[in-house]
């Protein structure tokens, strides 16, 4: 399970393709799942921001709530990812993956409580 450096690729290959291959091969499925969630949140945030800039920011509180919910969820999910990443095991010795998920779930529930209060 411990990640090892991929064998040196031939220099003719595109570095982006290389990166994608390495990610696919070396990232655990759980982290990929978190990444998919992060990607969805990012997309949602971008769409809301574009709507705000291009169409209307009225009602502003709804925009703030919607945008803050994606950003906040993104931050919480990212911290979950860093805590459950086996590579960071040394950094979070006292934080078990279960504890990390519980923190994430609690933080999210509080976040959503505030978001719906503010959504109007």
């Amino acid at each position: 399970m411990a990640p090892t450096k991929a064998p040196a690729a031939p220099s003719s290959q595109n570095p982006v393709v290389l990166l994608w291959k390495a990610y696919n091969q070396q990232t655990p499925d759980r982290l990929k799942f978190i990444d998919a969630f992060l990607f969805f949140l990012m997309l949602s945030g971008i769409i809301q921001f574009a709507y705000c800039v291009l169409v209307t920011n009225y009602p502003y509180n709804a925009f703030l709530a919607g945008f803050a919910s994606t950003v906040g969820q993104f931050v919480l999910a990212a911290s979950l990812r860093s805590q459950v990443n086996p590579q960071n095991k040394d950094e979070f010795k006292e934080v078990s993956p279960e504890r990390a998920f519980a923190d994430f779930a609690l933080g999210s529930i509080v976040l959503h409580f505030f978001v719906y209060n503010f959504l109007g």
Binding site: A62, G66, T70
Partner: peptide, 9 residues
């Protein structure tokens, strides 16, 4: 006008 934000949340 706020439905995109509601949908996002």
């Amino acid at each position: 006008a706020a439905w995109p934000y509601y949908a996002g949340a």
